[in-house]
Design a protein around this nucleic acid. Sequence first.
DNA 1: ATAAAATTTAACCAAATGGTTAAAACCCCG
DNA 2: CGGGGTTTTAACCATTTGGTTAAATTTTAT
Lengths: 205, 205
Amino acid sequence: MSKAQKDKSTEERILTAAKKIFVLKGMSGARMQDIADEAGINKALLHYYFKNKEQLFEMIFMEAAAQLFPKINKIFDSDQPLFEKIERFCEEYISIVTENPFLPLFVINEINQDPDYFLKKVWAGKSKPNPAKFLEQIDREVKKGTIKKINPVHLLMNLISMTIFPFMGKPMFQKNLGISEAQFRQLMEQRKKEIPAFIIDAIKK
Amino acid sequence: MSKAQKDKSTEERILTAAKKIFVLKGMSGARMQDIADEAGINKALLHYYFKNKEQLFEMIFMEAAAQLFPKINKIFDSDQPLFEKIERFCEEYISIVTENPFLPLFVINEINQDPDYFLKKVWAGKSKPNPAKFLEQIDREVKKGTIKKINPVHLLMNLISMTIFPFMGKPMFQKNLGISEAQFRQLMEQRKKEIPAFIIDAIKK
DNA sequence: ATAAAATTTAACCAAATGGTTAAAACCCCG
DNA sequence: CGGGGTTTTAACCATTTGGTTAAATTTTAT
């Protein structure tokens, strides 16, 4: 059992352990025994708290998705100017993911396993994302002549890609560029400013 | 058995089937029975051709990695001017991945499962990537004053992120933006020009 | 035609895995 | 102290899964 868990309640410890294992190995790669071990308990007690693997997985997945998605929507749906939105998105998103570096790969993975099922689950009831507002905002700026002509979808893809992908490709980048953990963190910290600057340079007239 | 496979040799059909299943479900999610079914044969024959799951998986993974990595290196290591390299990379990479949309997620996934093992395997013997040359080239352009001051590592990350990520987030983008298969292909086709233009706009003085 | 190779059938095995159970031990609160 | 919820122990079960085997059948090349 890892140190950080000793004081927490058993249920909390199970959830923390399950998150770690599921996020690391995915649904099919995770073993209930691994989760029990990680939580410092036995399998019987694990099932005493959670009926089965699927139910536990769904809790973890939903929590992970809730950590990643609603924040995007809130920023994109706000009434800030375009450039400020871009800056805020990078800032907040990189902060979240720096603390949970494996979340994006995990979530995207499981979504790819069954897009209809998981995406319906994710925006069930609450914050279904409304990219329309953000896309229209870009369109307006283009027509105003504030920024260069660009298909808003490409701009959105560029923003999200540059923000998220480095975390998914982390081991690859690290091995190929000889980057330490500390250096990687520092790079990601820089990207909070670097990406908005890059984008603004690319689109402003 | 899918139509495209009827004429191919059994071994080829197994490899095609295995690629499809492994790439879709990952090592832990893939079932030997699924591969046999997909290849239109039975499990006994599958093991008649391939000793075990690990050996088969490694062939598929190596083939997938070989499809993705060496081409990057060749472009980055060439003697073309910077802007041409960027254009060529986007062009060729998007072409490859359009025909194999699940490859990047698959490879990145398995690399994350065991970075040391898989990355050692990938650059075993042959094309270990040499990003140094590309990074130095960027540095030279910066010093020459041709492009704005930028950390080459960020530029490299931006380029690779924008090129690859949209394929990994495909279902997410499709659901959220209401994009059909045809529209997605068209968007990716556009990105062959869009990304280089975007980058060049961002960095040229 | 015949031998060799490829393929199917079908049964089987062992290990891994998700899940259950019942009894005992532990712990905390009234 | 006593009882209710918690946790352990340890055995057990059913299913899934990777892998094997042997015999029968089909295909292919000589």
